[in-house]
């Protein structure tokens, strides 16, 4: 189970790299893919040697991936300069990524929001009702009566 989480996170990182390097010059594309592949391997190896759990490793990969999304797209745009076809696909790609992010956030918003704010406690019942008057005291013993 644990290894599958790490494999999934690494596969997601590789998939994203394949996506944003799509249609780029082969040398550039292959170099970037190989570099990410190497980084993923080195990180996983290093983290396992330090005794990090699979969930931590997977989370680290996913956070590194998501924090770099904008830079990945910017890099693609930088490299597309002067190549109108690549620039055009880059715009489509950026729009698609943005759409996918919005849909993902919309789907996972309830999970990200957590359990939400707890509802306030019920107000105390202040509807006092007058309690019935205490029973009248017993009548005094008749005059002249003795306990004997």
């Amino acid at each position: 189970m644990g290894d599958r989480i790490v494999s999934f996170a690494a596969a997601l990182a590789r998939l994203w790299t394949c996506c944003y390097t799509y249609d780029m010059p082969p040398a550039l594309r292959n170099a970037r893919r190989a570099e990410i592949d190497s980084d993923l391997w080195e990180f996983e190896d290093d983290a396992r040697q330090h005794g990090d759990g699979p969930v931590i490793i997977a989370a680290h990969i996913l956070v590194r991936l998501s924090l770099g999304l904008v830079d990945d797209l910017s890099w693609r745009f930088e490299r597309a300069e002067g190549r109108s076809a690549l620039r055009r696909t880059s715009w489509w790609f950026a729009a698609g990524t943005l759409g996918l992010l919005v849909v993902t956030l919309w789907l996972f918003a309830p999970l990200l929001a957590g359990p939400g704010v707890p509802s306030p406690p019920k107000p105390p019942n202040l509807n006092f009702r007058a309690s019935p008057p205490p029973p009248p005291p017993p009548p005094p013993p008749p005059v002249g009566a003795t306990s004997k």
Binding site: H60, L65, L67, G68, L69, D72, S74, E78
Partner: peptide, 10 residues
């Protein structure tokens, strides 16, 4: 955290 992939390689 380590620097993000995109940020580092860019």
């Amino acid at each position: 955290l380590l620097t993000a992939y995109g940020t580092l390689y860019r």
